[in-house]
Design a protein around this nucleic acid. Structure first.
Lengths: 148, 148
DNA sequence: CATTTACATTTGTATATACAAATTTTGTAG
DNA sequence: CTACAAAATTTGTATATACAAATGTAAATG
């Protein structure tokens, strides 16, 4: 990926600005690829993320604030996001009996099955995106990301 | 930035997945900070980006497809984005006399003045975001980003 | 020169996201 | 027990983004 070529500039970009732009460009590319990988399943990245969190609960229901806490990209509207998953039959929703303010959300067997397929697609997409990077480089990259 | 802590998981995340998540988290953080920096000026990151492209034209007008080509994050609706800048008096818009399909967009003196202020705010935000990184690390980071 | 094809922009529509206000339920202080 | 504050979710609204179709203009073709 050549930054200057992509944004079609001949100017020398200051290192800090270039770094930020570079990162945004990479992020855009990754998002595009991931969105494409999930397209056959009709779910967004956020929805996929929520399904994974729910699976991680291992049978234990999660409420909306827990989901929101654990999401990679927080969005203000977990209610409507779960609506979508509910419509697809991937989750169940019920009022928590011990605290009726809370909503318990559980992944369904259908959701789990679909999620397994999505995992494969995402894993392939990840491999594709990171194909030029060695393990050492990945480690190095993660260390640098930690500095943000 | 500790990935596992932020998304509140105890599980070991595979290196590739972790890298992607890490990048998304950093991107979210940067976007938040940049959005905040631009808030006083009432422009979005995309609008700021367009203003910078227009300044780079040095008096030469740009048409919509040029803008779209050079934008860091392409969006399908440059028309409506320019509408916003027009409403703020930051740009002028006119039909190209030699080819009436094209629209010529120019940054106004008001736009240039405002842009100078935005530059300062963005530059500060960049410094803040990258404060833990040395020059060498920035170079190293850019090299790794090139592998995407 | 009429017709088709390509180009540049605009518009429509559906969905996504951000932010604030409203609703429902719970806990607590007097 | 009543009033009040806090918690958890929902709803409303404005704006952003993605994608497809429509519009207007120019160039190419026969």
């Amino acid at each position: 990926m050549n930054v200057e070529q992509i944004i079609k500039t001949e100017k020398k970009i200051p290192l800090r600005s270039r770094t930020i732009i570079h990162l945004l460009l990479v992020n855009t590319k990754i998002t595009e690829i991931m969105t494409l990988a999930l397209k056959p399943f009709g779910v967004s990245q956020q929805q996929f993320n929520v399904l994974r969190i729910l699976r991680g609960q291992q049978g234990k229901p999660a409420n909306l604030s827990t989901l929101n806490e654990r999401m990679v990209t927080k969005m203000s509207n977990t209610t409507r996001l779960v609506d979508k998953l509910l419509a697809k039959g991937f989750v169940n929703r019920a009022v928590c009996p011990s605290n009726r303010r809370k909503i318990e959300i559980l992944i369904t067997p259908t959701g789990l099955d679909a999620l397994l397929e999505m995992d494969k697609a995402i894993s392939n997409a990840e491999k594709k995106v990171l194909k030029k990077m060695s393990n050492t480089e990945l480690e190095q990259f993660n260390s640098l990301l930690d500095k943000f």
